[in-house]
Design a protein around this nucleic acid. Structure first.
Length: 210
DNA sequence: CTCCCGATAT
DNA sequence: ATATCAGGAG
């Protein structure tokens, strides 16, 4: 078994049924939660969406929101002006071009304002069960450290990962990589001594900060 | 490449 | 005090 296959297998064992830490009940809620999650902890997003999801129950509801009010409602997630514009703009387009429903392809999703490949793949995989590898800062970092990919471009890394992981495992793989990046292979203080993948990891000791 | 922005860890 | 954090747009 190749090193990459071993790593992918160990990762799946370490994170059986990896699920997102974001709270959501449907594709629209997940889309909104992922947009709000940029540069923000999942815990804070959940705190905000707990009340937000009770008030806005459809794409139309967000589309009709007062921007100034909405900005304040999501303020604590940071980048609130951009995010408010993204969510409201997104939902306007959903209403006008997608019958108020969240589309099921990367191509369509990325036409929505504020939605890039990472957000699109996150929604596809977790809300629709359509295979997708969401490459965020964690997946980028962990992939490079493990030696599963090389490079800083998210789309290139996504392609490299896609060629090594069978499509039916893309979503679980990317969710596991995110969890691993958050809790073990952290940017600042990676817990290499507790890492189940340490034996197969390509990251040289000299580059470790702790 | 820069800007957006608050919360949290260090 | 300040560096960094579940990105995307201009």
């Amino acid at each position: 078994m190749s090193n990459a296959k071993k790593i992918i297998s160990l990762l799946a064992k370490a994170y059986p049924e990896p699920k997102l830490a974001l709270d959501y009940a449907n594709a629209l809620e997940l889309l909104v939660a992922v947009i709000l999650s940029a540069q923000c902890t999942d815990a804070r997003v959940n705190e905000v969406t707990r009340t937000l999801f009770r008030k806005y129950r459809s794409a139309r509801a967000y589309a009709q929101a007062d921007p100034a009010v909405f900005e304040q409602e999501i303020r604590s997630t940071g980048f609130y002006k951009n995010k408010a514009k993204a969510v409201i703009g997104c939902c306007n387009k959903l209403v006008e071009q997608f019958a108020g429903k969240v589309p099921r392809s990367v191509a369509e999703l990325t036409t929505l304002p504020g939605v890039g490949r990472k957000t699109a793949n996150m929604v596809l995989g977790n809300a629709f069960g359509i295979p997708g590898i969401a490459v965020d800062t964690h997946v980028l970092r962990v992939s490079n450290r493990l030696g599963l990919a090389r490079g800083e471009d998210a789309e290139e890394v996504e392609a490299q990962l896609a060629s090594q992981v069978p499509p039916e495992k893309w979503t679980a793989f990317s969710n596991a990589m995110i969890l691993h990046g958050r809790h073990v292979c952290a940017a600042r203080k990676p817990l290499c001594s507790e890492c189940p993948l340490a034996g197969e990891c390509a990251w040289p000791d000299k580059e470790r900060t702790s």
